[in-house]
Amino acid sequence: MKYSYFPGCSSEATGKTYDMSAKAVCEKLGVELVEIDDWNCCGATSYFSARELLSFAISARNLAIAEQMGPEDVVCTCNSCWTILAKTNAYMAESPHLAEEVNDALAQIGKSYSGSLKVRHIAEVLINDIGVEAIAEKATRRLTGIKVAPYYGCQFTRPMGGDWDDFEFPKILDGLFEALGATVVPYVMRSKCCGGTMMLTAPEGALKMCHDLLQCAVDDQADAIVCACPLCEMSLEGYQPRVNSKFGTSFNIPVMYFTQLVGYALGCDPKDLGLDKQIVSVDKVLASVPA
């Protein structure tokens, strides 16, 4: 199976281990990720906050290149990249006027996008195209004994993913981790916002949101939180010390990308998954996996 892969800017920095582990998992599962040639930033929330047409246009530049490369679905790892690219795709399909405006802009750089592609999240691709059972069959390590809090993040299905999982209570990753032997805790805050976009600009709010998410995982007695978005991962992992100093807590809970833990179950080398690059050590969690 082949896909056009959109890694997103974080893949070169804070989200590097998401990129590494996603690629490692796909290789194990025989999924070919062909990186979109010379891709650019999706535009994220920033471009939408400044220039509407430009945000659609730079987002659509990626889709235009992907469309030229082939008819394969575009796959994103980052929730936010998925939200922006899928939204661009959907809005252009909904509004012929917008599609025309965007294509007028793309024409300036010799490109065009006809709207033929699908934009998908890697979690949904692995589960719906490869299948939970097929993944579990290939696993060489059982995650027995690990209690996982699946943190999907706010933009996991929003606003365009209502057809593949619930907006409020997504659950496709639950089944995957259960099939791999892990225990999935209820984690009712699974789709609440981490506040990542305002960590620098309004930290008092963002840290409260992180605190509540960490507290919920601890209350559920989770051994680790798995994420599907680099911003979520960064907020929950990187800001634990600041949450602790602000709220007087002592959180030290491992936070991973779901692909890291899936990759570990599939027998990938922990180094290839970037498991040595986490800020909160994941060694204790991995050590509890039966050999």
Partner: peptide, 28 residues
């Protein structure tokens, strides 16, 4: 910690088509 883990690079990656981004902005 991020820097040590290689998760905070000091240099930027420039894409080949960065002029295209500029052109899009100018056009809009």
């Amino acid at each position: 910690k991020l820097f040590a883990a290689g998760r905070m690079p000091l240099t930027a990656t420039d894409i080949k088509g960065k002029d295209e981004i500029r052109k899009l902005a100018e056009y809009v």
